[in-house]
Design a protein around this nucleic acid. Structure first.
Length: 553
DNA sequence: CAGCGCTACCACACCCC
DNA sequence: GGTGTGGTAGCG
């Protein structure tokens, strides 16, 4: 929401200064458009937001490209045109320093930027490393999403110099794409996680085994590039859900022993620090990604099809081979089809583990949107907030480890026991106490909050209690024997098991209302952005059946 | 007239021992 | 010395 607000503010300021410089003409001069003109779209903008606004106003399939135009400070101007028209001018070498702007929230391909300094890595065999990486990526795609592919589906572009080995890989998956490049980044970081362990363990002069265990406790990521991740599940069919938590990471740690050796990915930069061969800085919003046959300004090293490229586009009569490569290299050029599957890999939603220091008391929570790791309890809560024709929903949930308390923020349903009617503008919460097997209601209304209102406790239905007990027992009986095999997907980020891990901390036993406020107060801010959040979740734009979630082995 | 989106890093405040 | 925060230079 903050981002959007800032962007809007900037836009308004720009518009204001524009009108100051060029006031509107006092005379109205009507103009007729000429329908006989071919639909030619070629518009340049100084500002990215203006370019995107123009794209939105166009009914043609236009895209934003960035052109480098000043040597040194890498300044860009933004071009809006169609792929066809761009290729028409581009192929005759009129534009040399062109970048695709991968729009935020746009479905896109899996892509990689790979590089290492040759001098700092005299023994490194770039081609071999690329081949091994592709193998690993294909394995990960198969494991996480059941997507099959091979090196023949990877457009491999080279931009190397004597000093630097440099490649772009663009995966040409069949009827499969990622929801956006942020999700691609999450997937890439997740897939490369064993390599982070390697860097961290070597840096700290620790064995991978001890590191694996150490990592089970991290909540702030100790590794430079960041390794935290998690997933959210909304897909009923898969019904699988896991979150980053101690137990999970411990299992990852042990699973790592059987995971492939990623040490080939570790390279040194020009000052001898260890880094990954894979550049993780290319998965940001509106990332500029260099086009096929473009070079950075000031350099004359365009991206060309690599010697060891194994992707050959299907030949067609009306599209040249070069044009095919050009189109294949465009990350956000995803061909739509009825069977297109959209892959997601979330990390921001379930993950946040809060440390709350309060006179030597710390509390761990996990949080997420829409469905908690307890689908049965979600269903029960939904039942509670669907009454008298009002269709309430779960906007978000929080789980407090020590108290085993699930806090649901409810939307649309606002009935409050305290006032005996629905609130007009404030939302309510349903709290499910798993320890005492009861539920009660609180709310966000300032008056109710001031008097610390909490409804009577009601027992949880027998089915829910029973399910929870069964799960807990299963968890205890199988924990020791289980290594990397699949954990009960409905197990939340480990009520029972995490207590052992975190038991060093001494916390209050009773749930303090301050914690609930801490966990829910920003929900009120988030409320205004609720629609955009839903949009971001893809519910508005992408039909549910097209979304498949991360499948964890 | 005019880029964008970060993250690594630093300075500083605050707390605890 | 550990931890959180806020601002920014500079990288991709």
């Amino acid at each position: 929401m903050k981002r959007k607000w800032e962007a809007r503010l900037k836009q308004i300021e720009e518009r204001a200064s524009h009108y100051e410089r060029e006031p509107l003409s006092l005379v109205y001069r009507p103009r007729l458009s000429k329908p006989e003109e071919p639909p030619s779209i070629w518009k340049l903008f100084h500002r990215q937001t203006q370019a995107f606004n123009f794209v939105k106003s166009c009914k043609e399939d236009v895209h934003v490209f960035a052109l480098e135009y000043k040597v040194g400070d890498g300044q860009h101007i933004y071009l809006v045109t169609t792929y066809t028209q761009l290729w028409f001018y581009y192929k005759s070498r009129n534009l040399l320093h062109c970048y695709e702007v991968i729009p935020e929230n746009a479905v896109c391909k899996l892509y990689f930027d790979l590089e290492f300094n040759r001098l700092a890595n005299p023994g490194a065999d770039g081609k071999k490393m690329v081949a091994l990486l592709i193998e690993h990526v294909c394995r990960a795609l198969q494991q996480f999403y059941r997507v099959s592919c091979s090196a023949e589906d990877v457009l491999n572009l080279d931009s190397s110099t004597n000093e630097k080995f440099s490649r772009h890989l663009i995966f040409q998956l069949h009827d499969v794409a990622f929801k956006d490049n942020i999700h691609v980044g999450n997937f890439v970081r997740k897939m490369l996680e064993p390599a982070f362990h390697l860097i961290a363990s070597e840096d700290d002069d620790m064995t991978p085994e001890t590191m694996g265990h150490e990592f089970s406790h991290f909540s702030e990521t100790p590794v430079k590039q960041g390794i935290s991740f998690s997933k959210k599940s909304t897909d009923k069919d898969m019904g699988e859900s896991w979150t980053t938590n101690s137990k999970k990471l411990e299992r990852l740690g042990s699973a790592k022993q059987s995971s492939p050796d990623l040490s080939f990915l570790i390279v040194k930069n020009n000052v001898g620090e260890k880094h990954l061969f894979v550049d993780l800085g290319v998965y940001t919003r509106n990332r500029n990604f260099r086009l096929y046959k473009s070079s950075k300004i000031g350099k004359y090293v365009p991206l060309e099809v690599a010697e060891d490229n194994k992707f050959y586009p299907v030949q067609s009569e009306n599209i040249s081979k070069e044009n095919q490569y050009f189109l294949s290299a465009l990350v956000s050029n995803v061909r739509f089809s009825d069977t297109l599957r959209i892959l997601t890999c979330d990390m921001s939603q379930n993950k946040r583990v809060k440390n709350f220091n309060h006179t030597s008391t710390s509390v761990e929570t996990i949080e997420g949107f829409q469905c908690s790791p307890y689908p049965e309890i979600d269903q029960f809560v939904l039942l509670l907030v669907n009454k008298n024709g009002i269709k309430g929903g779960i906007r978000r949930w929080n789980y407090f480890f020590p108290e085993e308390l699930l806090v649901y923020d409810i939307c649309k349903y606002r009935w409050c026991e305290n006032i005996g009617r629905a609130h007009k503008s404030n939302n309510i919460m349903i709290l499910v106490d798993l320890k005492n097997e009861v539920w009660y209601q609180k709310c966000h209304d300032p008056i109710c909050k001031a008097e610390n209102f909490k409804s009577d406790c009601f027992p949880l239905p027998a089915e829910v209690r029973l399910l929870f007990l069964l799960k807990e027992e299963e968890e205890f009986t199988t924990d020791e024997t289980r290594d990397s095999e699949t954990k009960n997907p409905h197990e939340p980020s480990s009520s029972a098991s995490s207590k052992g891990t975190f038991s060093d901390a001494d916390w209050d036993n009773g749930i303090d209302d301050a914690y609930i406020l801490e966990a829910t107060e920003d929900a009120e801010l988030a409320e205004a952005a609720e629609n955009s959040l839903l949009g971001y979740n893809g519910i508005d734009e992408i039909p549910d059946e097209l979304i498949i979630e991360v499948l964890q082995e």
